[in-house]
Write a protein that binds this DNA or RNA. Structure first.
Lengths: 211, 211
DNA sequence: CGGAAGATTGAGCGTAGTCAAACCGAGTGG
DNA sequence: CCACTCGGTTTGACTACGCTCAATCTTCCG
């Protein structure tokens, strides 16, 4: 069993009282935790106070995996009742990765951790945002993505249909279309089918209330 | 860079035509892919045909990470335009993990992969389901989870508040409460605050249209 | 006993879903 | 060359699911 493999690393067992925060989003990641008893919730929060619970963990589950790529916690963990956890030192894990002759395993762990974080962002979007905010986030991400690849971040062609955007953002294609039109009305964008030009990036960004 | 590390493994570069399916949910995972050019969508689908796009991938992104825990693809990947990808043999990755003296890295990869899959399930729930279906999924998962830990799968106490359930499922606490009451009205459950007794598991399961 | 936190229920409203029609551009075949 | 189809997009009208606000009730705890 996986749990037992990891269990060998972690001798200590610490108690966590109900309602206590085991770690908080943004803190340095010194340990990953394996739940031994009790129940936790993992959650993300936005700047304006909305909260998205991303998981409930029970015995055998691991806490904090999202942070392995960069060494910072990407979510908070709170005990829902008195609980016990095994702390697993981050150092031990990174050492074990680096010790092996393969940097590949290490790279893989990092990439998978990034994927977890990315999906968490999408959970927050799907769970807490409205149509306008969702589409704004989508466009800003895409803009950053294009820019990072050397293209203009302000003018580009979408590769996906309205239906695909809608599926991604948890809304119908009609609502995607309407929201595009709304943004255009407000002079935030120019939209022509799949061609997008962002006219006012700061104001578009201000539509996003989250962190 | 991570990508270059992985790049060393993957000599070939294959072309994928627009609209072509690179791999499909449920197929055996022989390769993970690194996108070299073009754009892909990754998606999950339900039994009744709903589709949830979980990501759009561009150059440098990896495709198929969710399947690493058990060797089956957990999502489908479709090219949105003509594209090129580096196939990375699954065998190479698992060998590299197992070769090292640490089974820990291997266990870690497996656990992280499971976490990715779990989050994908939640994406599908948040993106495509209605209140009743969401709560039914939640209860069924919880039931399975309790059962797996040796408790009764049909009668248990919730550890979390209505608000926390609501946050998890992307609905308000009031809607959670009303939906519980609705289920009780229909004789699917007995609910008393946090105590739940499932009266008709099959009928509850039939409320869930997804895979 | 009083206060606080959680749960339930009701009433009204609003956002986004559904259904439908019209439009547009690309590709195909007569 | 034009007519036709087809997929994708836009827009409109209507509807409904779930959100908001609010009141009530219970349980727990000081």
């Amino acid at each position: 069993m996986d749990r037992e493999e990891l269990g060998k690393l972690s001798l200590p067992l610490i108690r966590v009282r109900a309602r206590k925060v085991l770690f908080r989003e943004g803190e340095r990641l010194d340990f990953v935790y394996a739940v031994y008893s009790g129940t936790f919730k993992s959650c993300l929060s936005t700047a304006d106070g909305r909260e998205q619970v991303t998981d409930f963990q029970m015995s055998g589950d691991l806490l904090g995996l999202g942070g392995l790529s960069h060494g910072w916690h990407t979510s908070s963990a709170v005990a829902l009742e008195d609980a016990q956890v095994h702390p697993i030192p981050y150092a031990a894990l990174s050492k074990l990765d680096t010790a092996g002759e393969s940097d590949v395993a290490q790279a893989l762990v990092r990439l998978m951790s990034q994927e977890i974080v990315r999906e968490q962002g999408l959970l927050l979007l799907l769970g807490t945002m409205h149509a306008e905010e969702k589409l704004a986030v989508f466009l800003l991400n895409l803009s950053a993505c294009m820019k990072a690849r050397g293209y203009s971040g302000l003018e580009f062609n979408l590769r996906m249909s309205r239906a695909e955007i809608g599926s991604y953002l948890g809304m119908t294609l009609e609502t995607v279309s309407r929201t595009f039109s709304g943004f255009q009305q407000e002079r935030l964008l120019e939209v022509d089918k799949r061609h997008i030009r962002i006219l006012d990036l700061p104001r578009l960004a201000s539509r996003v209330k989250s962190a």
